[in-house]
Structure formats: structure tokens, C-alpha cells
């Protein structure tokens, strides 16, 4: 029966049907991340009951969520371009370390307060700018440039406190981790402000549209006179800014500046962005996808910890998640429109 049906279709109808089926599949898969998040919440609630679904654990999740979210937001724009940024561990650690030796601390007599923090973030912004600049002007793949900068920044981080990490003694910074408003911890508020900023950039500025366009097909923005190189450099600079903010937030949380603030942030961030549905091939996804993606990662880690899973197995599970997410999204990217 099905075979007869097929014979009755013309080639064009077959083609149209194929495209339709693909679009349908895509629509279904678009909601997959949200379903995964809900499923995780249900599973952990059933498994651990009130321990997981308690207010105190919710606050803990929000706390754990903050830094991965800020980092992943920066990465989202880079991946939407079709690029990748591996500098994260370095830049985040560098920003945190530099901030720690510029504010009131146990290592030296500096006390630049808020300016110290601004300088630290600026350092990260400059790194982002250079990653973008080298990538665009010298036509080096972004993963190579950013990987080099990861090492450079880690080096700078170590140098900034020359061996002995500085402990923050600024009273305001020391108090911040315990501050909360409406039950939400301060550092989560920082992350939420960054989220709003990114939503603004993505949805309400021309720049946000250009990111999608460059990621889809560079010739389209070029043909209307948009400077594609500038868009790319701006995206990497913006990512640098967010990594810098993440570094400072990490410092506030830890109370001590060290290169390790950025350690092991990169892969979970990549995973979160991709799981959220932002395609590695570019032009697709966005900030809200990353919100879901980071929540999935955070809830998963939190839930697994509660269930007493061996931390080494947790790392392995993260790897499998990245793999599955990449397989799903690359399939999504391969739309057949060449006839």
C-alpha cells in the first residue's frame, strides 16, 4: 500500500514531502531539551524526594548554576557564529586572579575596590578581542587561537599572584556570597543580569541579527554591506567580557584568587550550549537555549551528587552527554536543500 502511494507521487512532491518531514522532525527536536530538563527533575524528585525538591537544594542549584550560565552565555554567541572558544579556563582564571590582587587582599597593599574588578574584567575583554582579531585577520581557526590564549591566560593568572594565591580581605566582597535577595543568592543575580544583557543583545539590537546571519551564511550579510569581520571580533570580545565577569564571580564565591577558578569550566559550558540546541554549525539556537542547557547540566550534576554517584563517573557521564548532543545537533544541521 505504502509502495503504491509512493509511486503515485511525482519527484517534486517527494522532494516537498522530504523537506516537510525534516521540518517536522526539527520542530519536535526543538523541544527536546526542555523535555530532558523536566524528565531529569521528575526522576531526581522521585529518587530523592524532598531532599532534591527542597528550597535549600533549589538555592544550591541556583548557586551552582550562576558561573556555568555566565560562561555559557559568552560561548553561545561564539558557537552561533559557527566558531568555538577554548580560552575559557584561562580567561576566567585570569580575571579572578587579577581581581584578587587588585582589591584589598592578604598578598599586597592594593585596594582599588570596584576599579580592581573593572580592570580584571577589562583584561579578559582585551583577550577576547585579540582572539577575535587573530582569528579573523590571520584566518586562523578560532579553536586554535583560543586554545593558545587559554594557556597564555593561565600563565598570566599564575604570574599575577606569583605562587601564593591572594585571599580577598575586602569586607564587601567577603560579605557578598552570603547576601541574597528574594531568596536568590547574589551571584545568581549577577548571572541573571548577564542573561538579561544577552537577551537584549540577541533580540533587540541589529548586532544580534547579524550574529545569526554570519552563522547561517557569511555571504548574505556581506551582500548588504555588513562588516562580517567586525561582527566576529565583537562576538569574541563580548565572550571575553562574560568570561571576565565569571572570573570575578568565581573569586567572590571562593574568596581566594587563583588560576583554578576557571578550571574545568570549558567542557561543561560547551556541553550546555550544544545540549540547549545551539548548533555547532552556527546560525541556530540562542541565549534561551543555553539557559535550558545550563540548567540541564546543573540539575544533572546536583542530582547525581545527591544520589551519591562517584565523581569520576559523573565526569564520564558529561562526556557521553556532549557526544549525544553533538550527534543530535549535527543531524539537525544537515538539512537537504540541494536538489
Amino acid at each position: 500500500m505504502a509502495k503504491e502511494n509512493q509511486a503515485a507521487l511525482t519527484i517534486q512532491e517527494e522532494f516537498a514531502k522530504k523537506i516537510k518531514a525534516e521540518n517536522r522532525r526539527e520542530k519536535i527536536i526543538k523541544w527536546a531539551p526542555v523535555l530532558v530538563l523536566l524528565a531529569l527533575i521528575v526522576v531526581f524528585t522521585i529518587a530523592r524526594g524532598s531532599a532534591f525538591a527542597s528550597v535549600s537544594n533549589l538555592v544550591a542549584i541556583l548557586n551552582q548554576w550562576a558561573i556555568p550560565l555566565i560562561v555559557a552565555l559568552g560561548l553561545t554567541f561564539v558557537i552561533m557564529l559557527g566558531g568555538i572558544d577554548l580560552s575559557i579556563d584561562g580567561t576566567v582564571g585570569m580575571a579572578g586572579s587579577i581581581a584578587s590582587v587588585l582589591v584589598m587582599n592578604t598578598l599586597n597593599d592594593n585596594n582599588f575596590g570596584i576599579f580592581g574588578i573593572i580592570i580584571a574584567i577589562l583584561c579578559s575583554v582585551v583577550v577576547g578581542f585579540f582572539v577575535g582579531l587573530f582569528h579573523v585577520k590571520l584566518k586562523i581557526p578560532s579553536f586554535m587561537v583560543s586554545f593558545a590564549f587559554m594557556n597564555i591566560c593561565t600563565g598570566i593568572a599564575y604570574l599575577s599572584y606569583s605562587g601564593t594565591p591572594a585571599t580577598v580581605s575586602d569586607p564587601v566582597l567577603k560579605a557578598l556570597p552570603k547576601v541574597s535577595f528574594l531568596g536568590i543568592p547574589f551571584i545568581t543575580w549577577v548571572a541573571l543580569v548577564m542573561l538579561l544583557l544577552c537577551i537584549y543583545i540577541q533580540e533587540y539590537t541589529p548586532f544580534g541579527r547579524y550574529i545569526y546571519a554570519v552563522g547561517t551564511d557569511e555571504t548574505i550579510p556581506r551582500s548588504v554591506g555588513i562588516n562580517v569581520d567586525h561582527v566576529k571580533i565583537k562576538v569574541f570580545t563580548l565572550a571575553g567580557f562574560l568570561f571576565g565577569v565569571a572570573g570575578v564571580v568565581g573569586l567572590i564565591r571562593l574568596g581566594q584568587g587563583q588560576a583554578g577558578i576557571g578550571k574545568d569550566l570549558m567542557f561543561p559550558a560547551q556541553a550546555a550550549v550544544v545540549i540547549g540546541g545551539t548548533s555547532l554549525s552556527g546560525g541556530k539556537g540562542g541565549v534561551l537555549n543555553t539557559v535550558v542547557g545550563t540548567l540541564i547540566m546543573t540539575v544533572l550534576i546536583n542530582g547525581l551528587t545527591m544520589m551519591g554517584v562517584n565523581p569520576n563517573i559523573k565526569t564520564g557521564i558529561q562526556g557521553i552527554i556532549i557526544l549525544v548532543a553533538v550527534i543530535l545537533t549535527t543531524k539537525r544541521g544537515a538539512t537537504v536543500i540541494s536538489k
Binding site: Y204, R209, Y212, A213, T216, G283
Partner: peptide, 24 residues
Amino acid sequence: IVNLSVGQNLFFGHEKDFMRMGFV
């Protein structure tokens, strides 16, 4: 650009004509 809306495509590259207080 398939992931943008029809309107955003029509005026792609001309968003500046629609800016109001920093927002498109």
C-alpha cells in the same frame, strides 16, 4: 536567514532605521 523571521529578513541590514532608545 532561515532562523530569523520574515520581517527581520526583509529589513536585514537596515535595522538602524527602526532603532528607538537602543532597542530595535
